[in-house]
Simulated assay, not measured.
Amino acid sequence: MPSPSPILLAPMEGLLDFVLRDVLTRIGGVDRCVSEFIRITGTVLPDRVFLRYVPELLNGSRTPAGTPVRPQLLGSDAACLADNAAALARLQPEGVDLNFGCPANIVNRHGGGAALLDTPEALFDIVRAVRAAVPAHLPVSAKMRLGVRDASLALENARALAEAGACELVVHARTKTDGYRPPAYWELIAAIREAVAIPVVANGEIWTVADAQRCRELSGCQALMLGRGAVADPGLAWAIRAADGQAVSGAVGWTELLPQLDAFWRIISHHFPGRQRVGRLKQWLNLLRRRHPEAEAAFMEIRTLTDPAAVDAWMARQRA
């Protein structure tokens, strides 16, 4: 059963893929993951593409640790998104999420992601078409930003999504123009939460327990979605739960993280080519060093390595 104050793991293209979902949900504390976006551009994707992004579909739409994963679709053509959602539904996902928040120019140039926030009617048409295309029991949720340049259409966008049939709305508390620059404007989520009758989840710039508490205070949302904060501090969800008074097994320190770093390396070694896997390990360590001094030392030790065999040897020393 989901907790009274759900904590979700965010979709993050190029970072929070099935490998990190596997490892982070082994550590635990999150109720559900959302996949990186699957881009829909005019054709119905074959099953192998959905499975490449969300291999958890072969495991009941759950990570190996048992945490549900909801695939996310991104596009601008309502009919094509609906057709792809119907194809995805045959693989029995936990639900279908729709991306109205990606700020990347390469996505926005084609009318996808946050670019759609200038046209609430387009949001309505997409959600309505997808909701009609998938079985009634399947949740259809959405993620949006505050707007493109400002939050002037935020309430209209949120109402369009809810009225079209979205069962849940995640709000990243920045505009497309803001990108990922701090701060996140959590206080602007409060009016959105009041404007719709569906659950609203607050997202953006939650790095610490104090951030989570302040976000809840300003947004009025108890449900949170963690992104880079959970990658930098894999124990963040548990720490938030501990601050909420929930019984947890203990803090997640470097000693607890080392076996998961090893698991991460083994999984990427199986799925990715040499240089790419070394880059992925450096990418995670680079974020981990925000929270863990030991990760700073580890990053400095491997930052010049490019040969997977050298990283294998380094990892063996860590196990010892």
Rank of each mutant, 00 (worst) to 15 (best):
Q213D: 06
A239F: 06
D244W: 11
G279F: 00
E187C: 04
E256D: 10
L257V: 05
L218Q: 15
A164I: 03
H271S: 10
A197T: 09
E194S: 13
G220S: 04
G253F: 01
F272Y: 15
E163Y: 02
H172K: 10
A243Y: 01
V231H: 12
E168H: 06
G274M: 04
P199E: 14
R145W: 03
A191L: 05
I268D: 13
V148C: 03
G204L: 04
Q213Y: 01
G165V: 09
T177Q: 14
E156Q: 03
D178I: 00
R181L: 14
L155I: 14
R159A: 01
P199W: 13
A223N: 06
R277I: 06
W265Q: 08
A197Q: 12
G250R: 02
L218S: 10
P234C: 13
L153M: 11
W207H: 09
E163H: 10
R193W: 06
A247R: 15
T208Y: 07
K143A: 04
W207F: 12
R275N: 15
E187G: 04
L224D: 12
D262C: 10
R216D: 08
K176I: 05
A197Y: 00
R174L: 11
H270W: 09
L188N: 03
A212Q: 08
G165R: 10
E194W: 01
A173M: 11
A230Y: 05
L169S: 11
Q260A: 09
P273E: 14
A160D: 01
R275D: 14
L146C: 06
E168N: 02
L281Q: 06
